[in-house]
């Protein structure tokens, strides 16, 4: 496991992805600092400071959440090729000849990717959060939930690219799989809005089923935002069902991997 984590870190540096993460973070920090100077110049003496700070907090929270989502997106795109590379001709012989069961090898690789890129996301997010704290100190320790929700979302997306990667042995295919799920999610949720107009019972059932099956990363991220703002959460079902989805996908990944010849 330690070997694979180190390997994943060296892959991260080799692919120059760290620079992408650093660049994006730098831009975000500059944006935060820039926008706070504007805010301060607008902030007149007479305004209710409480309201202002509340609005600022909301904006920052939303902004940080979006930034984290973008980092998750970057990580998913950046790591989609890692498993197919490990299983590519010439490299698979190297990894598979080691005294690790296939299950252990795959889960170790998956966990290495998740922990290395998860750590990068947390660090980049924390930097932006610190920049925000320069002008706004309203965040409590509850910010933890925001990070957690995005890590869960990363876990789910990685399980999709892992399964697609093992099944297709191609990085392009695993990126496409992630995109397909994303597009499906958008299509299903907008179609559900028109469900009543569409009328057909079968279609409605089909859409509902699809909605339940597909991971609900957006809802999870919203739950994270609401927990951070200490707002009421009606249901955590989005978290459990999506995690179940990811676990099933990981299970299928391992099963497929165990049956393959390379």
């Amino acid at each position: 496991m330690r070997g694979l984590i180190q390997h994943t870190i060296s892959e991260l540096f080799d692919r120059k992805l760290v620079y992408a993460f650093a660049l994006v973070t730098l831009v975000a920090v500059l944006l935060v600092l820039f926008s706070t100077t504007i805010d301060i110049s607008f902030g007149g003496e007479e305004q209710d400071l409480g309201d202002l700070s509340q609005a600022m907090g909301d904006t920052f929270l939303k902004g940080l959440s979006m930034f984290l989502s973008f980092l998750v997106f970057l990580a998913v795109m950046g790591t989609a090729g890692l498993i197919p590379t490990m299983l590519s001709p010439g490299q698979s012989d190297y990894f598979l000849s080691k005294p690790l069961s296939r299950t252990r090898l795959m889960l170790s690789k998956f966990c290495s990717i998740f922990s290395v890129y998860g750590a990068v996301i947390v660090v980049c997010g924390a930097v932006v959060w610190l920049a925000m704290s320069v002008s706004y100190l309203g965040f409590s320790g509850a910010i933890f939930y925001l990070f957690l929700s995005h890590l869960i979302s990363l876990f789910i997306w990685l399980s999709i690219t892992a399964l697609a990667g093992v099944m297709s042995n191609s990085s392009a295919m695993s990126i496409m799989a992630a995109f397909t799920v994303w597009v499906l999610k958008v299509v299903v949720s907008s179609a559900r809005a028109f469900e009543d107009v569409l009328g057909s019972k079968l279609l409605k059932f089909f859409l509902d089923a699809l909605y339940q099956i597909l991971p609900k990363t957006d809802q999870i991220e919203t739950i994270g935002e609401r927990l951070t703002s200490d707002l009421f959460i009606a249901s955590y079902s989005a978290v459990w069902t999506s995690l179940l989805f990811a676990v099933v996908l990981l299970f299928l990944t391992v099963v497929t991997f165990n049956r393959r010849s390379y």
Partner: peptide, 27 residues
């Protein structure tokens, strides 16, 4: 068991020592 594959493509961002270390860890 030690194995030297035919047409191997070891992860080429590793150094020689890096590859040996990774191998040692995997074993």
């Amino acid at each position: 068991v030690g194995y030297l594959p035919e047409n191997h493509r070891f992860p080429d961002h590793q150094t020689g020592i890096g590859l040996m270390e990774l191998t040692a860890r995997l074993y």
